[in-house]
Structures are given as structure tokens and as C-alpha cells.
Design a binder for these strands. Structure first.
Length: 567
RNA sequence: GCCUGGGUAACUCAGUCUGGAUAGAGUGCCAGCCUUCUAAGCUGGAAGUCGCAGGUUCGAAUCCUGUCCCGGGCGCCA
């Protein structure tokens, strides 16, 4: 459409007798206000070259237009701007037709573009998931869906951090004070059961610092193959993983491939030694192998300790290579908090130097932290917002609300309240720009009115309710004159494709989240000013509502949110 | 010290990449709207030196330089 505008502009400039060298094709813009048209040309850009004030240029250009082309409703000069209004009746007719035909596939690309692995949420198995993980999961899932929607094959992978001193801390506490209890006997969600011992350790270590050494000793025993320790680690890790699985399911994510640090932490040495041979790495005097990334501004980084053992980055190099080989990946994305930026920067440099993958194929999707009004969440100090507790609390609030207004059976109540609760949570986490830190205020952030997930659910339910009231949707006849709120809704629906594409290109789910909200808002305005059933435009408006439902559903799907037909 | 992200209304955030028309939402506050398709809604109002100072430009929240404040990183931890 923009090409048409440029075409028309070229024609008008020629007819006006202006001799222009300036390339103005990028100057054509989409105004923020619909009342200023669908496209606008700011004439300032020609003003200097022509030596004519911009508003005169706009008038002169408009004068050349004797007859409007079919695809435009109006072209008008407005001060220094020339505003183009596309033919909205045509647009509405085509749009509705296409959406109703393609339904959930509207805007989707079917091509087989790339195989992409997206790694998230990669938790530690010593404590339950918290709000930070939920942000990670919301982002990971949304980006996965966006990638799939744009025609890529996505493999969701998860690297479980199931070894290390932090794991030994909960193990040690269990060994000392656990009395062989089990989550089943105590009726506690298994990952919470494990986490309670991690908390216990951190309480006890305050008065007994030797526990720290004991935990380190335990790690040593574990790595040396001590049977009892291995058994304990297996038992506790499986509890943790069992609990995580439950939370993933509730939150609506399914990981395709699980990796375990305990299984790969010794791997990667060969790659390092080979790199040493190729002189990509070098050996220090005390025998450690390092890479010098001073030129890249990253300094020196140890890859293999002087005692020959590997560290975090060693196994990450191994795993990256394995991923590319096993799945023939075209791209590998890591979703983690921004505190790991240095690590991934170093990792990607190494992978490129070893020719495992160049940087275009690697992406660190780094997001900001979720803070509380008092500051950072600290699991050791117990100031974390627990993922399960938060979901339960939200669901409870919504369930109470639904109970007051509806007569639902228990399972319906459970299902509906969960969908709405997750809409609140996921939208809250995704509407904020991915790289920004965000503040979670337990008292204020839990809100169901205004710029929230439930607002969108409510809009969807109202639209659905209207459609339920009619038996059959008649053929749409586009009315001679469209109402302002109808036009707003049509234009907003028309933005969907562009928004999804931008979200994909920029790997930014918040664009879709914010669009979903604006779309729902536009619908609510339409809903209040345009009666549907019994009106002259009933047929058209029903189709418009059907299109709205579809686009909102598609849009919410991309940020991992389900819809409900009734509220 | 070096690297990196941020600073927009009382609060939580859009808008910045790709400079344009009076800087937008929501919450909270004030005033209206339920005998009509679900009031988790809609309409109106008050509320902003876009951290600060220069510069570029016809035009700067947006680009450049400097500066202040806040977060994160700079382990032979993960």
C-alpha cells in the first residue's frame, strides 16, 4: 500500500512541475492518529530543495489530483502534510473475508524456514520456581510460538542445573534433619519439599559456618562416586523435577528436550584441548587453559582449571556443539536473565572461533530482573515470590469473583479461573519490554482492571456473547457509511500482521502484548457506541466481531494466553 | 575503574532502533453512564522542565557529545 502512495506522490510531483532529487520514499509515514489518514507525507523534506514553504507544497500537490484513484477514499492537505485515506470499505471487506477464511492461521507463514532451539527456563533443582522463572517461561514460550507462527520449527529445550554446591546444601540439610521424610508423607509439593531444606541450610549456616565446608565436601564425594551421595542426589533431584513438571503443566508449557548438567558437566575437555592445539586458546604458567578476548573487550577467561577440571562454560561449549549436531540447528537461542550477558558474550565468541557456529546463529535473549518494591528478590533471605503460590493466589481471587456472578460446576470454575489468572500473570510479565527490570508490587500488580489480562479476556467474552445470541450470521453487506468506531476497529485489526512481523524480527513479545490490549480497548469503544443486534448494520457488525475474536485469539495465543467464551 | 541496561504524570509502563502534527495508556484522584448485546466496561476532567547541559536539524522524548542518578556484569562460581 505504501508503494501506491509513493507512486501517487511521484506522479503529483511531476504534474506540479517540481524538480526533485531528494529520495522521499522513507519519509512516507503512518500517522499516530487515524484522523490524519492511513499514510502521510510530510512536505518539509522537499521544502528546502524547492525553496517553498511546506504547507504550500502540500496544497500544490493536492491541486494536481483531479480524480481520486479507486483504492483511496480521500487525499487531503493538512498544513505541511499530505494525508492519504485508503478506501476503508474495500479494506473492511477484504480483511473480514481473509480472516474468516484463514482463522487461526491468519497472519501465519507456512514455509519451512529454520530449525531453532530455544532454551528455557533452566532452573536449579535445589528450590522451587519463583517469579523470575515465570518471566523466563512467559518469554520463552511466547518467543517459541512467534517463531513457529513465522514458519520455523522450534525445539524447546531445558538445561536442568542439577549439580553443584547449591544442590548439596539442600541435600545436606535433608540428610541431617530430614528424618527420611518424603513429600508424599508430608503432603508437600515435592520441589517445595526440597526447597524447604535449602532454606533450612541457610538458616543453620548462619550460626554454624562449617556447614559450608561440609556441603563442599559432599560435592567432592558426589563427584568421586560415593554411592550414598549419588542416591540422595537422585532422590532429591527427581522430587524437584517432579514438582517443576507440575508447574510447567499448569503454566501451559511443554519442553521438548531435557538436558541435565549432572550428565554433561565432565564433557567438553576434548574441545578445549583441541582448541589449544589450534592455538585458539592458550595455557597459563600454572596450567590452566584460557582464552584471550582482550580485543573483544572481554578480557581473559579460564576454560579449564589448572587441575584439569572443567567449569560452567566448558560444558556449555560442549552442549552448544551437541545441540547443533543432534538437531541440525540453524539457530540457537538462550533465554536467561541479563546477569549472564558476559557469559554468553564469551561463549558466542568461543563458538565462533572454534567454528562451531557463527554469531548470526546464536542469540542470547536476555531479560531484566523482576524486583520487589523493596528491591531485589533473594532466595536465601526468603524474599522471593513463589511461582506456585502466586498462581494459586491469583486463581483463588478470580474464583471468588466468578462464584459471585455465575453458577459453574467445580471443574468449570477451576478451568476458567486458571485461564483468567494466567492471563493476568502472563500479560503482566510480557507487556514490559524484555530488557527492562520490572517491579512487582504484590498489592498493586495483582489487578484485574484496566491494562490487564482479564480486561482482554472480558472483551473476548463479551464479543462471544453477542455471537451466541444470534442463530446465524447473515452475509455481510458493508454499510455505505462506516462509523468512526467501526473504522478504528478495522484499522486496528489490519495492524496484526505487521505487529507479529515486528515482534518476530525484534524478538520482542511485548509488542504483541501491547497490541492485544489496544485491540481489546478499541473493541470496547466500538461495543459501547455501536449496537449490533437489531441495528441496520447487524450483518456487517457481526462479521466484524467475528474477525475481532479471531485476531484477539491469535494475538493472545502468541503471548501464551488462552481465551474463555464466558466470564 | 571498565563493560552494559535504564531514567517519560503521584505510581506501573508504552513511545526511542527507523526524528515529524497538541508526548500516550493503565492505576490512583474528581465528575458522569447499568429497564438496551456481560459495569472485570464506557465517557469526561485534573496531573508531564520526557534526569541535566550543550550540539545537529525546518523540526529532537527519539540522533551526537558531555554529565548526574539507579540496576546488572567484570570468579580457576553457576
Amino acid at each position: 500500500m505504501k508503494e501506491r502512495v509513493i507512486e501517487i506522490l511521484n506522479d503529483l510531483i511531476k504534474k506540479a512541475g517540481f524538480k526533485v532529487k531528494t529520495d522521499f520514499s522513507n519519509a512516507v509515514e503512518i500517522p499516530k492518529e487515524y484522523s490524519n489518514g492511513d499514510f502521510a507525507f510530510p512536505c518539509f523534506i522537499l521544502s528546502k530543495e524547492l525553496g517553498i514553504p511546506p504547507h504550500h507544497i502540500a496544497i500544490r500537490l493536492r491541486e494536481q489530483m483531479k480524480e481520486l484513484p479507486n483504492d483511496f477514499e480521500e487525499i487531503q492537505s493538512a498544513g505541511p502534510y499530505l494525508n492519504f485515506f485508503v478506501n476503508r470499505k474495500n479494506l473492511a471487506a477484504n480483511l473480514i473475508l481473509e480472516i474468516e477464511k484463514e482463522k487461526e492461521n491468519y497472519g501465519k507463514l507456512e514455509k519451512n524456514e529454520k530449525t531453532v532451539m530455544i532454551e528455557f527456563p533452566s532452573p536449579n533443582t535445589n528450590k522451587p520456581l519463583h517469579l523470575g522463572h515465570l518471566r523466563n517461561m512467559a518469554i520463552g514460550e511466547s518467543v517459541s510460538r512467534i517463531y513457529e507462527f513465522m514458519g520455523n520449527k522450534v525445539i524447546r529445550s531445558n538445561l536442568n542445573n542439577d549439580r553443584g554446591t547449591h544442590i548439596c546444601k539442600s541435600m545436606l540439610a535433608y540428610k541431617k534433619w530430614g528424618k527420611n521424610e518424603t513429600p508424599e508423607k508430608k503432603k508437600i509439593k515435592p520441589d517445595h519439599f526440597v526447597g524447604d531444606f535449602y532454606v533450612k541450610f541457610n538458616q543453620k549456616v548462619k550460626t554454624n559456618p562449617e556447614l559450608e565446608l561440609e556441603a563442599q565436601g559432599m560435592l567432592k564425594a558426589w563427584e568421586e562416586g560415593d554411592k550414598e551421595t549419588i542416591e540422595l542426589s537422585k532422590k532429591m533431584n527427581s522430587w524437584a523435577l517432579e514438582g517443576f513438571e507440575e508447574t510447567y503443566k499448569k503454566f501451559g508449557i511443554k519442553l521438548d528436550k531435557e538436558y541435565f548438567e549432572s550428565k554433561i558437566y565432565k564433557e567438553g575437555k576434548d574441545i578445549i584441548l583441541e582448541g589449544l592445539k589450534k592455538k585458539v586458546f592458550k595455557k597459563t604458567e600454572d596450567g590452566a587453559i584460557i582464552i584471550d578476548l582482550t580485543k573483544e573487550g572481554l578480557g581473559e577467561k579460564v576454560l579449564l582449571r589448572s587441575d584439569g577440571t572443567s567449569i560452567y562454560i566448558t560444558q556449555d561449549i560442549y552442549l552448544a556443539k551437541k545441540k547443533f549436531e543432534d538437531f541440525k540447528l540453524d539457530e540457537s537461542i538462550y533465554v536467561t536473565g541479563n546477569e549472564q550477558e558476559y557469559h554468553f558474550n564469551v561463549l558466542f565468541n568461543i563458538l565462533e572461533k572454534l567454528k562451531i557456529a557463527n554469531k548470526e546463529k546464536l542469540k542470547h535473549l536476555s531479560y531484566g530482573m523482576v524486583n520487589l518494591p523493596e528491591g531485589r528478590m533473594k532466595s536465601r533471605e526468603g524474599t522471593v515470590v513463589d511461582a506456585d503460590d502466586l498462581i494459586d493466589e491469583l486463581q483463588k481471587l478470580i474464583r471468588e469473583d466468578l462464584k459471585k456472578r455465575t453458577k459453574l460446576k467445580k471443574f468449570e470454575l477451576d478451568e476458567r479461573s486458571l485461564i483468567i489468572a494466567l492471563s493476568a500473570l502472563k500479560y503482566l510479565l510480557l507487556k514490559v519490554d524484555i530488557r527492562k527490570n520490572m517491579v512487582f508490587n504484590p498489592n498493586e500488580s495483582i489487578s484485574f482492571e484496566g491494562d490487564t489480562g482479564p480486561y482482554m479476556e472480558y472483551s473476548f467474552a463479551r464479543a462471544s456473547s453477542i455471537l451466541r445470541k444470534v442463530e446465524k450470521i447473515p452475509e455481510a453487506t458493508i454499510p455505505e457509511k462506516l462509523e468512526e468506531k467501526e473504522i478504528d476497529l478495522i484499522l486496528k485489526l489490519n495492524e496484526f500482521r505487521d505487529i507479529v512481523y515486528s515482534a518476530y524480527r525484534e524478538v520482542n513479545p511485548s509488542l504483541i502484548a501491547n497490541y492485544s490490549y489496544k485491540l481489546a480497548q478499541t473493541f470496547n469503544e466500538f461495543y459501547h457506541s455501536c449496537p449490533v443486534i437489531g441495528s441496520d448494520s447487524e450483518g456487517f457488525r457481526l462479521h466484524l466481531i467475528e474477525s475481532f475474536r479471531q485476531i484477539l485469539k491469535n494475538s493472545l495465543y502468541l503471548i501464551g494466553i488462552d481465551t474463555v467464551e464466558e466470564m
